[in-house]
Design a protein around this nucleic acid. Structure first.
Lengths: 195, 195
DNA sequence: ACCCTCCCGTGTACGGCGTACACTAACCGT
DNA sequence: ACGGTTAGTGTACGCCGTACACGGGAGGGT
């Protein structure tokens, strides 16, 4: 194996490196999904024996971590001249592309049941509540998606600190409430019926 | 194997069922982490041969999906008498517990690099921007955690629809901005210095 | 010119994984 | 009594991550 260059060209296409490995891993991940990347397949793509990779990374986890780190490296820096909301918005849009994009496909990492069957019952309840609160047919699902994204993301990033979860949830609900047409803020008469 | 009951007691402790399998899987997951649950280990815990599980579930993914679905089943129903914010809050708090709790440990499913090294650079930029926007030393990290949770969650739940991501992000920023002490809303003079 | 050392990639091997497939022992309604 | 159905048994295959011992070639000190 690895016999293509024979002996001339001491370091050109041949010769591994962290960078070459990461590049190949990202490419393989983009094509087949990151979860299909195995040390053996990756090694084969590099025309090398699997154990060669271990010269450059402690284990598969370390390699995968490096792939993720690489992907988030080229998240755009914020432009300090812009208003803060715009800076944050740019940062996060860019981060979302990196995370959900072809190279990582974050969604594929976790049990798919999270996103469909299990979520249905929740969604039923939630959409009813939001509808009664005054969200229209177009806004209610978006609002729900927003709330669920926050919740799933928070659970994934770390369980600790209920208070932090509450903080963000309240800010989010504030923002959603402010987007409601008019109506009085939080009273309990809007519970049933549709005028 | 499975020789403990021998022949009497046609169906007591012995005899598999979807429920018994899910129970054992959840228990095993709570103890060692869901990612360590394998068909073989699960079968062993049930004192049965691995292939027996396939009478009840198409494959491992289906089984894991069912575990997740089961965990989300006992998310509390909202109390229709409460204000809508309270209903949503309860729903999501409960959901977060189910997702991040012992049985699932959602965070362990995805590459850990997401949460520490890769995120550091982002966090540096973001905390600076938030600090300059007027968030205090206590609020800025919470605000950032909220924003990142939303972004990660959205990326995990599905890549599609930029517009949906924008919708939620704007609501969230609205809520965060409203929590700012006083100051004028979005101008660009607050960029440097600390009065 | 020599050897020695170090580095990098090669092989081999092991234990664990998911699961396809063929089988058997017990149970059932007739 | 008996054929069919069902639940669990074994065996086997191909994949996985990786521990470990090895060889061969490049580079430097003498």
């Amino acid at each position: 194996m690895a016999g293509s260059t024979d002996k001339r060209e001491p370091d050109r296409g041949a010769g591994l490196s962290r960078e070459r490995i990461l590049e190949a891993a990202a490419q393989l991940g983009a094509r087949d999904g990151l979860e299909k990347v195995s040390m053996r397949r990756l090694a084969q793509a590099l025309d090398v024996w699997p154990m060669a990779l271990y010269r450059y990374f402690d284990d598969k986890d370390a390699l995968l971590d490096a792939v993720v780190a690489r992907a988030t490296d080229d998240v755009a820096r914020p432009d300090p001249a812009a208003p803060w909301r715009e800076q944050i918005r740019g940062l996060l849009s860019s981060a979302r592309e990196a995370l959900g994009g072809d190279a990582l496909r974050l969604g594929a990492q976790l049990p798919r049941a999270l996103l469909t069957p299990g979520a249905v019952r929740l969604a039923d309840d939630a959409l009813r509540v939001l509808g009664e609160a005054g969200f229209g047919a177009r806004e209610a699902p978006r609002a729900w998606r927003t709330l669920l994204s926050y919740t799933v993301g928070f659970a994934a990033v770390g369980t600790e600190r209920d208070a932090d979860f509450e903080y963000g949830l309240q800010r989010l609900l504030d923002g959603l409430e402010a987007s409601l047409p008019a109506r009085s803020s939080g009273r309990r008469e809007a519970v049933r019926g549709r005028p």
